[in-house]
Every structure is written in structure tokens, then in C-alpha cells.
Design a binder for these strands. Structure first.
Length: 378
DNA sequence: GTAGGGGTAACT
DNA sequence: AGTTACCCCTAC
């Protein structure tokens, strides 16, 4: 049992690939509220990535070096800060990020700080955020409209079914593109559906509150990086500066709740341990660490006087996971499936699917295999 | 990628 | 209660 759960955990959470490490680093590096020490720790902990692959990462690293150089006080007028800043800027790898600064700054530390502030504000969005935007934000309609069934299945895993319904609902004029959505929206209310709706409302109300907090906490921090996503998706994307999906206790580390699917006697109607959770939905065991921003905003302070925020540990209740909608096989689909088997042979589900893309657009090869099995049983 | 056993829940 | 669609797991 323990061995099985451990194996599952290891397959569920494989070591970070370099590409993923890069995405994490690139995202975190550009958040000025993440302390340099924390970023340095992350840099050390993750697989090595080249900072030269991303203007955002390169620039964020340079800005962090400048922040560090400018972090002291200039009260004594010794020019110490300026010298340190010039040392940093003397590094060709850093200078190349903002060549105009060398000439523009002169001896004015305050002007340099303003320029650094402006550079932080104008950092481009991270690849992670762009990708989130593509699958659940401003670019979602385009992405989903062009996705086949398998692709949508993967996208569903990422955004969750509630967001999927929302996106497909917006696409919704074409019933062949979003058939489940219409059905889900028009379905008569059963007790189960009411249950799900209520849970979902609770979750969304909760998310609404969280979003308010998040916006407050991040008022002056990379606003342009969040807005395109939140505008269109109601908070299915990262809205916190730092999130840690920490495992709460040793017993849970080896229990089925970690993966949410290993319990042999699991009940799929359960809001937590039911169908496979979306990667963007919060795990039951997730803990959120949020910057404590309860004091006065320090956005007006000069950067070197800004206080590094303290951590506040926050727990969230597990989210509701909506049920999947089912779609009856049409007679055409059944006939085409039989024809496909006659033509390509039983078991060549992939070929059959490719041969009749329109018919099997919303059927996976496993669906087809199961369906044919069911056809043969009756 | 697929087979097949086994399971759940929506639907009839 | 029976059927159907879909899912999970393991083995190959």
C-alpha cells in the first residue's frame, strides 16, 4: 500500500525538468516581492537553466543585482551606492539589458532608482503567464476552438471543468464544438447537480474573496502580468505571489489523498477524492503562503526602504470538483465505428479515429475501445 | 498505443 | 434495476 502510494506520488510529481524549472524561475524572478534570498534559494534548488534564454529572466536577474546594490542608505553621501550600482552595471551581461541607463543616470542615485523601478514595472510577462493566458485567458477561445477532443481533454486537466464550461460556453454558438456545455447548461436540476452547483458557488465565492486579497497584496506588482488572465477566467490561474502545495502530514504523504485517485474504494461523487483533479485546481492538501500586506502599503517608499514582507500561512478548504458530462453515442458514430473496425481491424482505434475525424472528434481511442466492447456485449 | 478487468455514476 | 459512458489500473 505504502509502496503503491509512493510509486504513484513519484509518477504524479516527477522531478522538475529543466524546461519547467526555467518556467518557474522566469515567473518568480520577475516578481519583485519575492525576496532575493528566496529567489537565490530557488535558483540553487532547481535544475540549472540558462538565464540567457529569456529577456525577462535575464533582466529580472540584472534588476535584482541592482536592487541589492541600491539597498543600503545613501545618507552619508559617500557615493557608495552609486559605486556599487556602477559595478553591477559594468557587468556586460547586465549592462546589455538596459544600455541606455549607463549614460542617463550620471551621479543621481535617485534617478537610477526611478529607472530601476520603471524597469521592474515594464518586465515582460513570463512564459508561464503567457501560456496560462493562452489556455484560460484572453487567448483561450482561440486555443479551445482549434483543439480536438484529446487536446481539450488535456486542456481540461489544466483549467478544470468549470473553466472549461465557461470557455466553451463563450464558444458555444456552434453546438458541434461545445456540445457538453449546452447540455450541462440546459440539464434539468437533479439533486446531484444542485449539490455540485452549491459547492461550486461556495468555491467561487471563496475565490472571489481570495482574489480581492491577492489584488491588494500585489497592487504594485506586475499588474500587467495578471490582468489578461483574470479578466476572462475568474481565477483559475496563479493569483498568489507564492504558492506551496505542501503535504500536510506524514500520513497524508502516503495516503491516497495526495493523488486523489488511488483509493480502491473511492467514491467518485465525493467532491475531493473523485475524478482526477485539474492541475490548476487546488489540491486538498495545498497550503498557501501569502505576503502579509496588512500594514500600510510600501509602494510609495523608495525601493531601498521597502520592507521585505513576512509570510502569513493560510489554509484553504478543498475546492469542489465538478462532474464530467456524458455524451450518448449516435447511430452514425456506432455504424462508423463498426465500419472502421471492419476496414482497419479491431484495435487500431487511432487509425479509425484519424480516418473519421469528424465522427470521432469528441471520442478518445479509449472511448472507442470501450464502446466497441459494449457493442459486442449486447 | 492497446487490451481487458474492474469500477462508478448518469441515464433510462 | 439495467444500460451506457467513461474512468482507472495493470500488463503487454
Amino acid at each position: 500500500m505504502v509502496a503503491r502510494a509512493t510509486q504513484q506520488a513519484s509518477t504524479t510529481m516527477p522531478p522538475l525538468a529543466a524546461a519547467d524549472a526555467f518556467r518557474v524561475l522566469e515567473f518568480v524572478a520577475g516578481n519583485r516581492r519575492v525576496p532575493h534570498s528566496l529567489f537565490a534559494g530557488l535558483l540553487a534548488a532547481l535544475p540549472p537553466v540558462s538565464p540567457h534564454t529569456s529577456p525577462r529572466l535575464r533582466k529580472a536577474v540584472a534588476l535584482r543585482a541592482l536592487d541589492a546594490a541600491l539597498s543600503g542608505s545613501d545618507a552619508d553621501g559617500s557615493g557608495e551606492l552609486l559605486r556599487k550600482a556602477r559595478d553591477v552595471l559594468a557587468d556586460p551581461a547586465i549592462a546589455v539589458c538596459f544600455p541606455e541607463h549607463l549614460a542617463a543616470v550620471g551621479d543621481d542615485v535617485a534617478a537610477l532608482r526611478r529607472l530601476v523601478d520603471a524597469e521592474w514595472e515594464s518586465l515582460p510577462p513570463s512564459a508561464l503567464e503567457l501560456e496560462a493566458d493562452r489556455i484560460a485567458g484572453a487567448g483561450a477561445l482561440d486555443t479551445w476552438a482549434n483543439a480536438d477532443h484529446d487536446k481539450r481533454k488535456k486542456l481540461r486537466r489544466l483549467v478544470g471543468e468549470a473553466t472549461e464550461r465557461e470557455i466553451l460556453g463563450k464558444l458555444g454558438q456552434d453546438p458541434s464544438k461545445a456540445p457538453q456545455v449546452d447540455e450541462a447548461a440546459n440539464a434539468p436540476s437533479t439533486s446531484g447537480a444542485n449539490e455540485g452547483d452549491r459547492a461550486q458557488q461556495d468555491d467561487e465565492a471563496h475565490l472571489g474573496r481570495e482574489k480581492g486579497e491577492a489584488n491588494h497584496a500585489q497592487e504594485d506588482c506586475a499588474r500587467h502580468q495578471q490582468e489578461p488572465v483574470e479578466r476572462t477566467t475568474d481565477a483559475r490561474v496563479p493569483e498568489k505571489p507564492v504558492t506551496s502545495a505542501a503535504v500536510k502530514g506524514k500520513e497524508q504523504a502516503t495516503s491516497s489523498h495526495v493523488t486523489g485517485q488511488a483509493a480502491p474504494d473511492h467514491n467518485k461523487s465525493h467532491p475531493v477524492a473523485g475524478s482526477k483533479p485539474s492541475l490548476m485546481e487546488r489540491k486538498p492538501s495545498a497550503i498557501v503562503y501569502q505576503w502579509d500586506d496588512s500594514g500600510d502599503s510600501d509602494s510609495e517608499r523608495p525601493p531601498h526602504q521597502r520592507r521585505l514582507p513576512t509570510y502569513e500561512r493560510k489554509m484553504r478548504p478543498p475546492p469542489a470538483i465538478p462532474h464530467k458530462t456524458r455524451k450518448k453515442w449516435t447511430e452514425i458514430q456506432e455504424r462508423t465505428l463498426i465500419e472502421g473496425v471492419a476496414k482497419y481491424g479491431r484495435g487500431n482505434w487511432k487509425d479509425i479515429k484519424i480516418a473519421y475525424p469528424d465522427v470521432f472528434q469528441d471520442r478518445s481511442t479509449v472511448d472507442m475501445k470501450d464502446k466497441f466492447r459494449n457493442l459486442g456485449r449486447h
